[in-house]
Design a protein around this nucleic acid. Sequence first.
DNA 1: AAACCCCTTACGGATATCTGTAAGGGGTTA
DNA 2: TAACCCCTTACAGATATCCGTAAGGGGTTT
Lengths: 221, 221
Amino acid sequence: MFKKILIAEDFQDTNKGIVNALENRMEVEDIQEELYCDKAFNRFKVAFLNKEPYDLLVTDLSFKEGPVARRLTSGQALIDAVRQVDPDIKVIVNSMIDDPAQINPLFTDQKINGYVCKGRNGLNELIIAIQEVYQNRTYVSPQINLNSNNSVFELDKYDLLILQDLAEGFTKKEISEKLKNQNISPNSESTIDKKVSRLFDAFGAKNTHHLIAKLIKQGRI
Amino acid sequence: MFKKILIAEDFQDTNKGIVNALENRMEVEDIQEELYCDKAFNRFKVAFLNKEPYDLLVTDLSFKEGPVARRLTSGQALIDAVRQVDPDIKVIVNSMIDDPAQINPLFTDQKINGYVCKGRNGLNELIIAIQEVYQNRTYVSPQINLNSNNSVFELDKYDLLILQDLAEGFTKKEISEKLKNQNISPNSESTIDKKVSRLFDAFGAKNTHHLIAKLIKQGRI
DNA sequence: AAACCCCTTACGGATATCTGTAAGGGGTTA
DNA sequence: TAACCCCTTACAGATATCCGTAAGGGGTTT
């Protein structure tokens, strides 16, 4: 079994619940917990440099902002940072998100080894996921249907980026600027226009208000 | 200290974290946990009828849908149901919501005794909240500013009429026409402009997208 | 009655949106 | 290589928005 596991989870109650369960129900020598991505990364890096690396990272995706600004503010950022140091570390994501369009890129882009969806069986699933990943298999919570192209229009990461900014009141011109600053492409106002128009068709929306309203009500933004 | 506490929380990891902490750090004889609102209510009701009532309910607000349809699907519904049976039971809400506009009604309408916002100190706060509520005081997580100027801006019927139409993709010109057809006054496009601009200020929105998004997320449309 | 406030409305200008057309690049196919 | 498709981008025109100014009406205050 894994010898050293690092837990990154910002909710104290959840964090304790995970640590307790792993301590009581698994044979792991060393389980460490952190409430901030930055702190988790530091702990991971120190251990790696001391040649006592962690075998497994279990991380949430969304982290509340703390009182001081942080460099790493999301599970995705943490995973990227960790992988740069140690490409071989195993990663399991433990999050409440259940949208395949958001989970899929974690596997394809970030090469995570397991995804556990928080819920009424989340802790049991996490234990199973750890065992599976230890056997070099991947694990995904059964309620997630990753290959569900079931006619529902899939919003990809890029769509979500734009939609979330629109919902926060940015204009398309501003979004275009933001994308350019972040070196994300495509980034022209014209392309954003086109993307959104395509979403109008896909969701039967008359204009931006309508589209944003529909998607929020569907819980997709 | 409270003798019997009931926990309603649907995420298994969080649920276990809370129960473990209360068992280890408080002197409570009987702590019971449930993952569904309905089950929590049943357990509460049976205990009440057996004259061994719970002293305190600790509940989340949002619950995932399960495989079978349930009668009670939210913390709010659970609180209402519980209060109908036993108006005196103490209630503490433990949720990730941090919007005063959503938390205020819990105190004013549902007469809860404490509100703990999940976060990096959530478990410690919950312990304090339980102690405070036991002393017949109320508790609110310090990061929540209930009397911040968002003193629950009231949307009147006319505001809602306009906002709902905007959320359904009507333009202000169309809304003006609709109002005229229904002999509702005022109905000029200019007045609708003014009303909505006033709502921008009230809710700190940059434009219509932003306003609609905020209000839907707050559950006000 | 005059002064005042608030609401409604019209209007105009600066921006933003929505939509269509067209040009160019990259990749695939024939 | 040519034909083709898809994506990105620029551009332009019609609408829609956002916001300020100003005029008029109704009610209240002085």
